[in-house]
Amino acid sequence: MSGVDLTDIDGIDENTALKIVSEIGLDMSRWPSAKHFASWLGLCPGTKISGGKVLNRKTKRLPGAAATAFRLAAYALANSKSALGAYYRRMRSKLGAPKAITATAHKLARLVYSMLKHGSQYVDEGQEYFEQRYRERVLKTLKQKAKDMGFTLTPVETAVG
């Protein structure tokens, strides 16, 4: 019906996909970007700033079936061996479960928006790919910090025995 299979995304089953499509529709032209879509769902962090001071960063509490469906789909990724499951677990260890669910739901919403707007298919690279990219980002950041401080990083070979 929509031209794409939303159930390709881990965490989204047939019922969740139907609930999301019935709530948001198939016309994605109502939102200029994925950021606008996620904000309409109430899955974006809000920033209340006054005088340069951050007063509040809580997400909006909007009663919507689509946002609830995205949150339940995010929660279902806790034991998934996919890249999205690895993302959820990393966010949970860093932020705690409630914020990790919202962050993963935000990511799922952006994926669904992209799939419905552009007709693209979702391809999961897997947990190993996500972990590899994370290690590369951390290593790049560490090298840059060491360079800024006048040091160089050299890898140490460890004997496996």
Rank of each mutant, 00 (worst) to 15 (best):
Y87L: 14
Y88V: 06
E136T: 06
K107V: 10
I9A: 01
A34Y: 04
L139S: 08
K48V: 15
R61F: 06
L77Y: 08
T47C: 11
K48T: 14
Y87G: 05
H36E: 12
V156D: 08
D10R: 07
L95W: 02
G150A: 07
E136P: 00
K81P: 05
F37V: 04
L43I: 02
T47I: 10
T154E: 14
N15A: 07
E157V: 12
A100Y: 05
C44T: 15
M28D: 06
Q127A: 12
K48L: 12
P63N: 14
S120K: 09
Y88T: 08
Y75E: 15
S114D: 00
T141V: 06
M115C: 02
H118M: 07
K140V: 06
A65R: 07
E131Q: 09
G85P: 05
W31P: 04
H118N: 13
A78K: 05
T102C: 07
W31Q: 11
G25I: 04
S80P: 06
L84T: 11
A83L: 08
K94F: 00
I9N: 00
S93M: 10
V156K: 07
G96S: 01
K99H: 05
A103N: 13
H106Y: 01
V123H: 10
I9T: 02
V4C: 05
E14C: 01
K81D: 12
E128S: 09
T141Q: 15
K143G: 02
D148K: 05
E157Q: 10
K143C: 04
L26R: 08
I101T: 11
K19R: 14
L111E: 14
Y75M: 14
R57Y: 04
R133S: 11
P32D: 06
R110W: 01
G64N: 09
F151S: 11
L139E: 14
L142V: 04
F70N: 05
I49H: 10
G42T: 09
L108Q: 03
V54I: 15
I49W: 07
A74M: 11
K145H: 05
R92H: 12
C44N: 13
P45R: 14
G46R: 08
T68Y: 01
G85V: 03
E125Q: 09
S50W: 03
G25L: 01
Y87R: 09
L95Q: 07
S82C: 08
T104N: 12
L72R: 15
I20H: 06
R92C: 14
T59N: 06
R92F: 01
H118A: 11
A109I: 04
P98T: 08
E14R: 04
L139T: 12
P155S: 14
L142P: 00
P45K: 06
M91Q: 15
K107F: 02
K145N: 08
I24A: 09
E23H: 11
G11C: 11
M115F: 01
T141L: 10
V156Y: 00
K145V: 02
L41G: 03
G46S: 13
T104P: 13
I9H: 00
V138F: 03
M91L: 14
N15R: 13
A97G: 09
L41E: 09
G161W: 10
